[in-house]
Write a protein that binds this DNA or RNA. Structure first.
Length: 290
DNA sequence: CTGCAGGGGTAAA
DNA sequence: TTTACCCCTGCA
């Protein structure tokens, strides 16, 4: 573990709030100076934006530049993607202007699976709290700048944790799901490394859906926000339903809007960039509060 | 102060 | 296709 620093200059499409508050991650916390600190794999990293420069500092084992280049998806041309998507219509264009600095993170597959199982029928402050307690109890401690941080627990580190212990950490009815999924992964009934190599998105999705606590929405979030990185999926939650209904369907009762209908619209309008369009629309609608 | 709906869904009926 | 589910927060 060593202290490292990396400065990225001339980076378009990189706004801290857009990246960390758009609902894709749960382990980044805003600091007093406006920067964000989070745990990636076995390291702690702080990201700060200053005069158009992105400053990464951290305590980690591997090369910091390599870690953040991968994690923040820095080799992808978001300007080009935004250009394409903004042509769809004026509403999408507005949403892109609003969340112009969004990047989709390459988060660890295991961590993303567990995080989104916890996210089911839950709210962000509580999700963050649960993940923090899980890490504190079962992850490894890292000390950086006199503060304690904890890595996200591996399947092995959760091996002997009981359902009752999960319940005590406030997981609620998700306790059984976390227990079952952990053991399915430990027993290699579903092999995450193989899943990572599989090209066919449909097949990967089917495998994810076999996990306890993973339904259609959670599966799509895992596909989009982890290293699986599938931009063609379109996770549908209440906010996405709301914004798609308001813009394109206009059903007076949004709870009656059919999922198939939303999927069709997403496919037709956004194609293989649906996932990213989802993020812009979601962030726009949710932050605007309208 | 108490009661209750609802939250970035899933699984079981 | 409908309903219960754990826990927390906001609001009537």
């Amino acid at each position: 573990m060593k202290k490292q620093k990396y400065i990225l200059e001339n980076c378009n499409s990189f706004e801290l709030a857009h990246i960390f508050e758009c609902g894709q991650c749960f382990r980044w916390n805003k600091q007093i100076d406006g920067s964000y600190t989070g745990v990636i794999k076995q390291g702690v990293i702080n990201v700060k934006k200053q005069n158009q420069k992105i400053i990464f500092t951290g305590m980690c084992e591997d090369n910091l530049k390599d870690i953040v280049t991968d994690y923040f998806d820095l080799n992808r041309d978001y300007e080009k993607i935004k250009m394409q998507l903004s042509k769809v219509d004026e509403n999408v264009n507005l949403s892109i202007k609003y969340g112009n600095g969004i990047r989709i993170l390459n988060q660890d597959l295991w961590e993303t699976i567990i995080s989104f199982i916890i996210s089911a029928n839950n709210n962000i402050p509580r999700i963050k709290g649960i993940i923090e307690r899980l890490s504190k109890n079962f992850g490894k401690e890292i000390i950086w700048n006199n503060e304690k941080y904890y890595t996200f627990p591996t399947p092995e580190e959760l091996k002997n944790v009981t359902i009752q212990e999960y319940r005590k950490l406030g997981l609620g009815f998700r306790d059984v799901r976390l227990y079952e999924t952990t053991h399915v992964v430990l027993d290699k009934k579903i092999d995450l490394e193989n899943l990572q190599k599989e090209k066919d998105t449909i097949l990967v999705r089917e495998e994810l859906l076999k996990l306890s606590g993973v339904g259609p929405k959670v599966a799509d979030c895992i596909l989009l926000f982890s290293t699986l990185k599938r931009f063609e999926v379109f996770p549908i939650d209440v906010w996405v339903r709301r914004v798609i209904n308001d813009l394109y369907i206009k059903n007076p009762d949004e709870t009656k809007v059919n999922k198939k209908q939303i999927e069709k619209i997403a496919q037709e309008k956004f194609g293989n960039l649906a996932g990213l369009a989802q993020q812009y629309l979601f962030y726009w609608r949710r932050e605007e509060g309208a």
